[in-house]
Amino acid sequence: MTGSITYTSGINAYRPNGSNTIVAAANGALASLAYGLAIELAPVRVNVISPGWVDTSLWDQLGMDKEAAFAELAERLPARRIGTPDDIAQAFLSVMRNGFITGTVLDVDGGHRLLT
Rank of each mutant, 00 (worst) to 15 (best):
T6I: 14
P43G: 08
D109I: 02
R113V: 02
F100C: 02
G28M: 05
S19N: 13
E67L: 03
A42P: 08
S32G: 15
S9D: 12
L58Y: 10
E75W: 00
Y14P: 00
G18M: 08
D60F: 01
S4F: 03
Q90I: 04
G83F: 02
R97G: 14
W59Q: 13
L114M: 11
F70A: 07
P16N: 07
A74V: 05
T6M: 05
R80F: 05
D60W: 01
E40C: 04
G83L: 03
N27D: 15
I101H: 00
A42C: 10
N47G: 05
R45S: 07
G18H: 04
A89S: 12
I5T: 11
L73P: 04
T21N: 10
L62P: 00
L62S: 10
W53A: 12
S4C: 15
G28T: 00
A79W: 03
V44F: 00
V105Q: 04
N17C: 02
A74H: 03
V48W: 08
E75L: 07
I88T: 00
G63D: 08
S50C: 11
S32K: 09
P85A: 05
T116A: 14
P85I: 00
A13I: 03
L58T: 13
S94R: 06
Y7C: 14
R45H: 04
D65H: 09
L41W: 15
V54D: 06
K66G: 04
I11A: 10
R81T: 05
Y14H: 10
G63T: 10
I82D: 05
Q90S: 12
S4N: 14
E40H: 15
L106R: 03
S32D: 12
N20E: 13
P85Q: 01
A31I: 04
A69K: 10
M96N: 14
S57Q: 13
L33R: 06
I11T: 02
M1Q: 11
H112N: 11
N27V: 00
K66I: 09
A79M: 12
P78I: 07
L58S: 12
T2H: 14
E72F: 05
G10H: 01
S32V: 09
F70Q: 10
R97S: 15
